[in-house]
Nucleic acid binder design. Structure first.
Lengths: 348, 348
DNA sequence: CCGAGTCTTTCCAACGTTGTAAAGTAAACG
DNA sequence: CGTTTACTTTACAACGTTGGAAAGACTCGG
């Protein structure tokens, strides 16, 4: 089978511990011995067995990432950013898909699979705030998103309310007054949908605009088809509108599609703004004005925080920092679907 | 730290081997003993240490997947499908991103990280056919894609030439005659770009249409911006065309965007067909006619093949099946960007 | 040439688990 | 009631590695 320290030791004519010492850069090794060992390693093509090393050292050099589904572009791009950030630290990433199913999310948290990793970056979508106790797991955990909050945990998220408010205010500042919203979740308060809807309402209030329930399109899955369906619902209500806020880009793109089918021109008749700044937002027709949520920063911060927590777990942990909630900065990316001076276009 | 067999054994008042036997469903255990042990497991919240189990058994229960980049939707959807297929077999997936960089791809192949997994599903993009010897690695490997072929390896791919030919023939059958192609790679013969361009040319030949080099747009990265740029190049040549074949969906979407900027209507003036059947192809404006390459089948087959190979590696391996090249079936998905009767639309 | 100090190598145990085989116990048979 | 047989539990070693500390070798000063 695979080459082990024993094989190398035999070929080099030394003990396995000496080989181990060479590999681990132990300083006191005679140059002659060192080169003998290195030659044997080269000759046999020895590679350390990371499983054994991990068992012995208690460190796996791997972390787990649990996301709903890689076919959702936001999570695919997030996963890519997490893997890249981990890679920079020499850490590999084991990816789990939960499908956003609460039962499956809880199962992943309790799964013995996690004994293969040093910690978990967890992006829940299905569990409720009441499930927070289930997050008290015996390994380092960093939470993502805004589904569940727990002061006991490190958490990396974004200013959803503020960002959604800024997006809405952007539409208002551009001259729009009747702003539909697509992707709301019935009755949700905590969570992306709840927070972003709140930001939307705050912006309306601040501008003295009335909130019209007929302009709210509901859909649970934040898929394109969901955005399309929610947009159709709003159109069916018959209430006039001159802008749409998609609670994420995928929803906005689905909505844009329906608007076009309905003969409404974007942005001439209706401005559309999204949320996430997906790659594809730049290349849709028209390109999508959206909120950049700082995804890369979130990924990097989540990895750094988790690694710090893992390192602290080994030490006496008395001096470990308290769990913190870290929030990314957002930025509005203006593109064609919602120009900063929309009414000028509309009037043209 | 974590609870081990020893802790459970102590609480239950038995030896650790008995606990191990209970966990592994060894049949000869007295019911009383069994329930004592199970109660202790429950009480302590014992979870087996998979690293130790893996070291002892030589099986990790994990596989690695190396893809270029999760921000490329094709690979994100592929990775999602692979993880789902592995999950069904109780296997976890460690995802590596190579960036399509040949040096990094070779590095991943040789990386000791793979000692943490039982095998690798490898989707190369940068290495050349001449790198095939580097694929002779000491662990089970399943190749994806059409970048490199090696009779020594299991390989799951698709009928690129035939599918591209079918896509082109679909455009021809719809009445188009001047078909541009976007995403070619200068001089490439083996690889997605080379094969698909070949299929395109075969279709032209079979229909007695002339190949016009001015209708070929080149771009190395199959990103949306690449498609946009290649489309601009073709437009700049000034040669007239009435259809575009994007060598993948992303390219086609980028191209569609440029066509619209240039005042050309899709599909009225120009039909557009893509390749990959990404989620977003269904929701672009207009929705994208494309080739479904059987991605899910490819993922499932790759995982099944790898697991079979891993299982065979344990046995005497004499009866292991020979490495095989398995090809997915493709299907043309007709949507708006290229209706089956395009000329009828154009004539209208 | 001896002893102290320093450098270099080795031995042993342990990480948590399971395969092997032996030891112990109970049931069944004559 | 002794003996075979089947059942139940345990001891031990091993997977490949590294931490700790002992053992061995060398250098230097006196």
């Amino acid at each position: 089978m695979a080459v082990t320290l024993h094989d190398v030791a035999r070929v080099a004519g030394v003990s396995i511990k000496t080989v181990s010492n060479v590999i681990n850069d132990y300083p006191h090794i005679r140059p002659a011995t060192k080169s003998k060992v290195e030659q044997a390693i080269e000759e046999l093509g020895y590679q350390p067995n990371l499983t054994a090393r991990s068992l012995r050292s208690g460190r796996a050099g791997a972390i787990a990432l649990a996301v709903p589904d890689l076919s959702l572009p936001y999570f695919a791009e997030l996963a890519g950013a997490v893997i890249a950030a981990a890679e920079a630290a020499g850490i590999v990433v084991l990816v789990e898909q939960t499908g956003g199913d609460p039962a499956r999310e809880l199962e992943v948290l309790r799964s013995p699979r996690l004994t293969m990793t040093d910690g978990l970056i967890f992006s829940p979508l299905g569990i409720e705030q009441s499930d927070a106790p289930a997050l008290r797991v015996p390994y380092p955990l960093v939470l993502l998103g805004e589904r569940v909050f727990d002061p006991e945990h490190d958490h990396v998220s974004m200013r959803n309310v503020e960002a959604a408010r800024a997006a809405t205010e952007f539409l208002i500042a551009s001259g729009r007054r009747r702003i539909a919203v697509v992707g709301a979740h019935e009755g949700e308060v905590i969570g992306s949908a709840g927070f972003r809807l709140q930001g939307y309402r705050e912006a309306l209030d601040a501008a003295g605009l009335e909130f019209d329930p007929d302009l709210v399109g509901y859909t649970a899955p934040w898929h394109r088809s969901g955005g399309a369906q929610a947009m159709r619902d709003v159109l069916a209500h018959g209430a006039p509108f001159d802008a749409v806020f998609g609670l994420n880009d995928t929803l906005a793109l689905g909505a844009m599609r329906v608007l076009q089918e309905a003969g409404l021109r974007v942005p001439h008749d209706v401005s559309v703004i999204g949320f996430d700044d997906l790659d594809e937002a730049e290349y849709s027709i028209p390109s999508l004005t959206t909120v950049d949520p700082g995804r890369r920063w979130i990924a990097r911060t989540a990895v750094d925080t988790l690694l710090a927590r893992i390192a602290a777990a080994t030490l006496d942990a008395a001096d470990a920092p308290r769990p913190a909630l870290q929030l990314a900065e957002f930025r509005i990316i203006e593109r064609e679907s919602a120009p900063a001076a929309a009414s000028a276009v509309a009037d043209a």
